[in-house]
Design a protein around this nucleic acid. Structure first.
Lengths: 351, 351
DNA sequence: TTGAAAGCGCTAACAC
DNA sequence: GTGTTAGCGCTTTCAA
């Protein structure tokens, strides 16, 4: 893109402040960076001059010498998915931004297509992100919505960039900080709830199984069965994704493979919406014939009829904790940390 | 926050590339910035060296001399509101980011509380934002979710920062680029739809009236009445906001002031959800007794029973157009531009 | 077409 | 405590 316009007029420099305050640049710099080694007199003069001149430090100049940018990146590796179709993304952003409020770090948003083959451009996108991040644009990165095989986190880590992942990495050997919700526990709780209420044929509409969250929720479904000594049968599982269409399609397949299903755990509320619509069309009553449990406690869960029993994740807290972990690393903390946030079942009318 | 850690190891500099390629720094710089004044031989040698060394330009150093940051800011002036409770925000972000994909501009996200009195910290927040923006952190700004009295856009404009607003500014004297949805037309279409279907007492649950979008939707409601020579009566209007709670409360008031209401236009789908719940609790059938029309065509509109007739806004396009307008200004375009995107009614079962 | 040289505005030793 | 000085890595005249 051509950027041939003359830039805006520059503001006053540190030099100007120094002259106005009758001190040297160093002293001004000390005041600005909050060094204690400044006399009250000098400090006062400098502060007054800064105020009067409306001085604002030039971040580029500062960054050039400190080798810090004051920016952390939030990388979203999947612009097409549920990250944007639900309040999920907004909640994470809010959490992150809250945790960073008292810092003067800024948040840069990087959207990158998913890794191949989901996105043909994914490879190219990854390079773009890596260039940006490793080229010194950011001091650290928060990674969201990764697929299992994505080399991005490993590359960034190898280059020494502080990184925090949303969700446990698929390869446990990766020494990285992450924050995850207890998806497995949530999946188990949802399933056990249906089992405990007397359902005999509880199926599952999974999320994408190449994402750890999708996998974990399914594992929880297995756990709950195992805990009761119940077998899990393949015809009670239908692979879906987090979308309404995906949920609807999976529900149709499930109705075919297991017509006697009387309960179903769905990977997301939005997918559950699709499932509910299919059930209604098939003449199955919810919850009388089939009980349904969703995931996320999004606004959808309260909109549908009957209101959806769902597993709530503390999404905003997830964002906040990620930011805290990254801040800790930026502050010099050497060891990585892993956090699992509890999920819990919200029982409503659907099952 | 203490940031006492040694920064990461620096990559190769332009100097190193120059040595490796056997040319001067200037020549490398010309290659990197895409200047035509370079011999094919030199260019080739430089490109080879860049590739071999994995050179990435230091953005701070570049920014220091060019006075451009390569960053545009997306400022969201209202972290608590519907911006985050719905896919609205995500859709805008996606649109913006799409339009910026082929550029190498980056997106910085600034969340700032609303302006006072909605947010006691708003004043302080505004200063923070202004310092960031005017301190040279970004080349331009996209402003989202402004309230009518917010001085932020005027301040930024006065300082010469390229700015694009989401939504028409409340003060028409502001010479600024903006992109708006035709909220007024949408409000009129929704109202006329109810009127045309034979409703005689059509009420409205407004959004916040200190936001232009809220005002416009209400004006559209008036327009539709005026077009039919119908009077608008105060008891058919209840002030609400964009939230479920706000919609529910307003609906309750409306039922009190106008018990015979037979149609209602609601400022957002989420607010409409609240209204539907109140109507159900009051024993009113939708759409038989009261028809309801929402705004936004969010996922909620498809989740509720009956499915919500709603006004769709091209939110993603709104983001994209905003970005395009800003890019134009950054490219030297002097004149401001104003864009109004069409909205349209999506008729479903609720009215 | 290329190179030399002068900064951009700031921080951080290192004296004093 | 404070000032002096030397860069950080890059772009951009200006000569050649």
């Amino acid at each position: 893109m051509p950027l041939d316009d003359p830039p805006r007029a520059p503001g006053p420099t540190l030099e100007a402040v120094a002259r106005a305050a009758g001190v040297s640049r160093s002293t001004v710099s000390r005041v600005v960076t909050g060094s204690p080694r400044v006399s009250p007199t000098a400090r006062h003069a400098v502060e007054e001059a800064i105020e009067r001149l409306g001085y604002v430090p030039n971040p580029a100049a500062r960054s050039l010498v400190t080798r810090r940018t004051g920016t952390v990146a939030l990388v979203v590796r999947e612009p097409e998915s549920r990250v944007f179709d639900e309040p999920f993304f907004g909640a994470v952003v809010r959490g992150v931004s809250q945790a960073m409020a008292r810092t003067d770090l800024q948040l840069a948003l990087l959207l990158a297509g998913a890794s191949p083959p989901d996105d043909p451009d994914g490879e190219h996108e990854r390079r773009r992100i890596e260039r940006f991040l490793l080229g010194g644009h950011a001091d650290g990165a928060l990674l969201l919505s990764l697929h299992a095989d994505d080399p991005l986190p490993r590359d960034l880590l190898a280059a020494g960039l502080p990184v925090v992942l949303a969700g446990r990495p698929s390869t446990p050997d990766l020494d990285v900080s992450w924050v995850d919700a207890d998806n497995r526990g949530g999946g188990a709780a949802a399933t056990e709830h249906l089992l405990a209420s007397g359902r005999r044929r509880v199926g599952v509409l999974t999320g994408p199984l190449d994402m750890v969250a999708g996998r974990d929720r399914l594992d929880g479904y297995h756990d709950a069965h195992a805990a009761r000594g119940l077998p899990v049968v393949p015809d009670l599982q239908a692979r879906g994704d987090f979308t309404r269409e995906g949920g609807a399609a999976a529900m149709m397949r499930l109705l075919t493979s297991a017509p006697d299903v009387d309960g179903v755990v769905v990977a997301s509320d939005v997918a559950a919406l699709g499932a509910l619509q299919v059930l209604a069309a098939a003449g199955r009553r919810v919850p009388e014939d089939v009980a349904v449990v969703g995931f996320d406690d999004s606004i959808v869960a309260r909109s549908v009829q009957p209101a959806l029993t769902t597993v709530r994740q503390p999404v905003e807290e997830l964002g906040a904790r990620m930011a805290q972990l990254l801040l800790a690393r930026l502050a010099g903390e050497a060891t990585t940390q892993q956090v699992v946030l509890p999920t819990h079942l919200v029982v409503r009318d659907s099952g």
